[in-house]
Simulated scan of single mutants.
Amino acid sequence: MLLPLTPDGQTPVRVLTIAGTDSGGSAGVQADSRTMTLLGVHACVAVTAVTVQNSLRVSDFHVIPPQTVADQVRVVVSDIGIGAAKTGMLASQATIEAVAQVCAEVGIGQTGSIPLVVDPVAASINGDPLLPDSALDALRHTLIPMATVLTPNLDEVRVLVGIDDRTARQAAEALHKFGQRWTIVKGGHLRSSPVSTDLLYDGDKFHEMSAPRIVTAHDHGAGDTLAAATACALAHGYDVPLAIAFAKEWTTRSLQASYPLGAGRGPVSALWRLREAAPLPPR
């Protein structure tokens, strides 16, 4: 399943990523832009932080002034227009609050017409902290309630609500109390299972979405890729369950195409899309 491509010479669907950079090129705005481009979407970027990282770790990061982050969002939406937005690394309480405020101002999120995917990035894939404790309440109570869909992995669920003594359904119910429209609890980090099952919840019904687990040591950027693909599908007018199903299939294919890079974890790869000519599905 692929999103329809825009004919040459016509303006494609636009999606905005509000996230940090990855100097190693595996995650962050680099992973988001790669997925968006290979899905035929024009990627717009509001950079929140510049990281110093490679395949082994994040050794430092510099936070972009929150007003500059908000201004990037404001000028893109007012001139170029977007069909959806996603957030990734937000780095500080002030940035989270600035992003929430500007999203409300320009119509991104539940109070507006532009869908918002919130990927609550709190730590790198290698465990390096990317969000200080002081910012977690701002994330829980200002930005997450604006989300069309929240996409935490199990580690992020644990940080946000505590999951050690809860089932995935209980965790989804606890997360949903923050006020977002849809919650997905990703099962990709539960490596003991031969199947990767994500649980989608709208406050009423649960939807299970499963795929074969791809055994690979190279999964850097998987969460970014899922959130970016979800935003692209939402921008094309897909409803949330279909958008998540599409994004899960895209991420599975990208995991299958992952490759080694440096001495640590390599990235998932959307480059498989360049090697396959597949028919476009009906909408």
Score class of each variant (00 low, 15 high):
184 I>D: 06
188 G>Y: 02
125 I>C: 08
222 A>N: 02
68 T>I: 12
156 E>H: 07
211 A>V: 15
157 V>Y: 13
120 P>Y: 09
95 T>V: 12
20 G>Y: 13
216 T>N: 04
282 P>Q: 15
153 N>F: 02
182 W>R: 00
31 A>N: 06
129 P>K: 02
145 P>A: 01
145 P>N: 08
236 H>R: 01
169 R>A: 15
162 G>N: 04
64 I>R: 12
203 G>M: 07
204 D>R: 13
143 L>R: 00
15 V>E: 01
155 D>E: 13
146 M>W: 02
154 L>I: 15
236 H>K: 12
28 G>M: 13
43 A>C: 13
130 L>Q: 11
26 S>A: 14
56 L>D: 04
59 S>F: 09
176 H>G: 12
43 A>K: 04
200 L>H: 08
227 A>E: 00
282 P>V: 14
49 A>C: 02
33 S>Q: 10
97 E>N: 07
282 P>N: 14
275 R>D: 10
115 P>W: 12
198 D>T: 10
246 F>Y: 13
183 T>Y: 04
220 H>M: 03
263 A>D: 14
143 L>P: 05
245 A>R: 14
280 L>G: 10
45 V>K: 02
224 D>M: 09
29 V>A: 01
12 P>I: 14
9 G>A: 13
46 A>T: 01
87 T>I: 03
217 A>H: 08
4 P>S: 15
101 Q>S: 12
237 G>Y: 14
168 A>C: 09
144 I>W: 14
216 T>P: 00
56 L>T: 12
195 V>Q: 08
162 G>I: 00
133 D>A: 08
138 A>Y: 01
107 G>R: 04
224 D>R: 09
7 P>Y: 05
36 M>Y: 00
281 P>Y: 15
231 A>V: 00
120 P>E: 05
207 H>Y: 10
235 A>P: 03
116 L>K: 11
185 V>M: 14
31 A>T: 06
111 T>P: 04
82 I>T: 04
71 D>Y: 12
153 N>D: 07
40 G>E: 15
157 V>W: 05
105 E>M: 03
253 R>L: 06
140 R>D: 06
182 W>E: 00
196 S>I: 14
